[in-house]
Write a protein that binds this DNA or RNA. Sequence first.
DNA 1: TTGTAGGCGTTATCAC
DNA 2: GTGATAACGCCTACAA
Lengths: 351, 351
Amino acid sequence: MTQDDKAIGRRVTLEEVARMAGVSRGTGSRVVNGSPKVSPDARRAVEEAIARLGYVPNRAARSLVTRRSDSIGVVFPVPTARFFGDPFFLLFLNGIGTALALRGLQLVLLMPQSGEEEQRLERYVAAGHIDGVVLTALHGDDPLPERLAARGVPVVVNGRPPRGAQASYVDADSRGGAASATAHLLAQGRRKVATISGSLDMPAALDRLLGFRDALEAAGLPIDPSFEEVGDFSQEGAARAMHLLLERQPDLDGVFVASDSMAVMALGVLQSAGRRVPDDVAVVGFDDQPIAGTTRPPLSSVRHPIEAMSREMVRLLLHSIDARDRLPRQVMFPTELVVRESSGGLPVKRS
Amino acid sequence: MTQDDKAIGRRVTLEEVARMAGVSRGTGSRVVNGSPKVSPDARRAVEEAIARLGYVPNRAARSLVTRRSDSIGVVFPVPTARFFGDPFFLLFLNGIGTALALRGLQLVLLMPQSGEEEQRLERYVAAGHIDGVVLTALHGDDPLPERLAARGVPVVVNGRPPRGAQASYVDADSRGGAASATAHLLAQGRRKVATISGSLDMPAALDRLLGFRDALEAAGLPIDPSFEEVGDFSQEGAARAMHLLLERQPDLDGVFVASDSMAVMALGVLQSAGRRVPDDVAVVGFDDQPIAGTTRPPLSSVRHPIEAMSREMVRLLLHSIDARDRLPRQVMFPTELVVRESSGGLPVKRS
DNA sequence: TTGTAGGCGTTATCAC
DNA sequence: GTGATAACGCCTACAA
């Protein structure tokens, strides 16, 4: 019976729950929504009926009156295709998804493939089908955050938004992390240190390059463009970049790579070119993804807390939704260099 | 003014559209939903009003009456964490997302992290918050497809579902692809051919292993377990597996790897172990992902049409939703061996 | 072809 | 604390 009640299609409504509990729909609603103004008796009766009938509130009906969709959008602008080799996105998605699920919110994935689709997305979101939006992997000229914000849609960006747009964002201290990675290489006595960067129209990529230069400058070394190559955050790009660097600077002795997935490729290219790592060339990556601990040799890398950052993004977004204020807020997370064998440094206890 | 109309928050309803167009709400609705029973005049007037006001239908209101959510769920059971290095998932997600967007449907991403969350997911979906579900990356003992189907939720599975569950699914001919990859290695004169497989509780992984054995048997060669190692579909696992294989069979001369992302690692391990590819060891991967064309040497691989498959999954799912039948349907896509340098075969024109 | 009106399942605003 | 009752925005017979 309980069986049957829960079975196929039998949509059970609050009305039925209330009837079974011997109360009114109103009281039923109050129980469901955790209102304090309900007598213990009524609450118990309703809860029991809910369990018995397997009642789950109808989202559409609720949305209609609350004017909330209880779902938030995550936007990947998909010329992002090149990132498909990068686990970052799934880790990120996973972090956001978990944080949302905890609050009973839905994650709607939006992957506009073109400018046209991006416009449709904009109208769609502006129409109120989504309570707020998380943006990531933005490129330099993407007007999306500003446009959405202008339409009154709560927005939180992953990473400093391009063009200094006024938006809430959560970022990791990429520049500082890159600088400490590079400084670490220099501290090992490396003097011909190169870098493979991401797409420079992405703030995170740019920051990592700037951090690299910061460290060189701090050490009194010159900035030499022939030691810099764009890897584009793709594995293909990384391989190409590593080859180019080796060609131009055959005796380079250190490389800072702007992502672990690129670093893995760089490692491979170095090794097939006969370089020993770290003996001939020391390598440091960025992201400290699981794979870093398992390459040969294990990869030193800059860690940034993806989980914590995605949680914070959700927190900011929900706050912005609740408070109905649109004051942009920024949160910066520190990064941390994790030293392993690839950089020739003393491996720290953390594996 | 048109400006203002579209501005922040001004939710415009069908009522207003109708008023502006000088028709009734009913007629407005008909236009919006493309009913044929509307005079050209009325249609034009309504469409103009819609454009002027920037009207977008309220999904919640529509859902409430149509009893459809117009959103479908994509489920990644997330012990899938180990796949995070595999671009397959984003390509897949992208394929599904595109197919859905084309039809104005929403992609709701569901990533249950535990058995408990999976149960919540089940209740949630059964409550009708989602019109249908796409499942992927299932492991052998996952009861989810059956349970959802039992609750009357339209389901389509990516890959043959475990335990022979009665569900609609779309699959690639993994076994055939694996067999032809292996046969290709044998045709190059390789005789000590090993394989790195995925998690064997996943049908796709098992099929690839079986295909590998098929080819050996067909060539009259013995099946030797010491030439088989589980790589788990993770890059870490692949590296470990390759090391183990080399240890056990130092003179192996060919490897069939069950995914490209694992193959990339295998390539690296082989090369740092001093093996030349393909001279000493020929390698074939599976998936034919972008990276395959850019490794050194370029990786031969088995291609399966992710895009086409995800489109087909959406098609099947929508059909199942519309037709309200629950007859399981299966669609199998062929695979195709793409020969590049890593296997020592004659590279085919396709790069 | 068009307009009218009932109802989808909730929440919120009232009196009580 | 509780119970009516009016929205919420839309679709869809039904009538005209």
